[in-house]
Design a protein around this nucleic acid. Structure first.
Lengths: 226, 226
DNA sequence: GAAATGGTTCGGCTAGCATCGAACCATGAG
DNA sequence: CTCATGGTTCGATGCTAGCCGAACCATTTC
């Protein structure tokens, strides 16, 4: 089979407004039910069901049954990354007349990307962590330094435990709004959780927007200053 | 306008077998004419023309008129990168029964990605350049070190001249077959040209495959040894 | 000039697919 | 057991878009 068909198989699946909307909604990281997804995509649940089963079959999504509910999520981080990439290209090729409204400005500043922080503040955090010597890039791979291991431990984040899991601790993820990288992986997820826990920011369900409080943002910037 | 429509606009364009085939053909880096593209996609030239104009309008492609010919190429490196990404996901989600034939093995080893070298040997080269201290990664950006500047200069590659151009000298590009990065940017392109010039490898037009001679591969591995 | 070749435009055909209404299965609550 | 609710399956419908034949425009060649 030719590679063209392969790539068209995937892209064609994403290239349908309703399905794209569904995928985008799942980038918020929460697992959602079929009816919830139907609502956000403005279609009936039958239609949603059809779309969902197709995407399941193609392994773009994973599902988890709980009682009479079925919770859908993205199949993996590569899918989320792919969507970010598509957003990047879409952004670049969009007619300049329609450019960025106020809501997009917020998204540029801070949003959730699957399960970690993206946008300006996400990049700022990543840069800060490296500048502070807690992370290091070596041969394309992001590593936690010894200092970092110690530091995160004091903040209650057990790097060793994370390393036990199959999922990688640190990974980079390309940011469509800034064209730079931010931190993904289980550490990235943990750091976002920490931000939300300490009420520096809120994540309104159903949106990818992360809204920092004034004080929260100030503290955040201070902590991750380069 | 919602982001879902945006991303569907792009993905839908790529998600059509004929168009995907066209885009893939253009990843070989050569600019191709409409009829050539029609042939590789197995469609008539009228159909190809329609596809091409749509992709032009969406800024996925650029075109250059020369006499009665029109030469098409990808609009930018981000498009090539996106296609690589899609290949990656397609690869992962493909039914294991159909996995890799002998031709794909060659593609994994060495292929062209728009205008630079990808595949195992591409990654090897990148790693080697860093290990030898000619390149460095700093804050997500790949830089040429002073030693590198000197070294490449002796090989006839003028880094200063490259820096004059708008295009970035070094960039990383995610490799679908290996899930690591290889070198892109004008330096990446120049290094590939060097390989082809010195007859270490050949690039058969119309394919993305790069075939090294036995001797060429040996010399290549030696030069870029980590 | 005429002939040849690259490319586009137009019109009509067809297939595929997204969509919804309605019926149906499964789980949980009372 | 009965009812409510989440989810899927089926069938019918309508629209879109890919496709090609034919005609047409543009450029080069002889």
């Amino acid at each position: 089979m030719s590679a063209g068909l392969d790539i068209a198989r995937i892209a064609g699946l994403v290239g349908e407004p309703a399905r794209a909307e569904i995928l985008l909604a799942l980038m918020a990281g929460h697992a959602l039910t079929a009816t919830e997804l139907a609502q956000t995509a403005n279609i009936t649940k039958q239609t949603a069901s059809a779309h969902l089963s197709r995407m399941l079959k193609a392994e773009l999504l994973r599902v988890e049954s709980q009682g009479r509910h079925r919770y859908f999520r993205l199949a993996g981080k590569d899918i989320a990354q792919l969507l970010e990439h598509l957003l990047g290209v879409a952004e670049r090729t969009r007619s300049p007349a329609i450019r960025i409204g106020p809501r997009d400005a917020g998204m540029r500043k801070a949003r959730i990307c699957y399960d970690h922080l993206a946008g300006d503040l996400g990049v700022l955090m990543f840069d800060g962590l490296i500048a502070q010597g807690l992370l290091r890039i070596r041969d394309e791979v992001v590593e936690v330094t010894r200092a970092g291991q110690h530091h995160f431990g004091e903040r209650g984040l057990d790097i060793d435990a994370m390393q036990g899991q199959r999922r990688s601790v640190c990974r980079r993820c390309l940011d469509w709004s800034v064209r730079r990288h931010h931190l993904a992986g289980s550490l990235g997820a943990a750091l976002l959780t920490e931000v939300l826990r300490s009420n520096w920011a809120r994540h309104s369900r159903g949106s990818r927007l992360i809204t920092f409080t004034i004080q929260g943002e100030s503290l955040f910037r201070q902590r991750y200053r380069s």
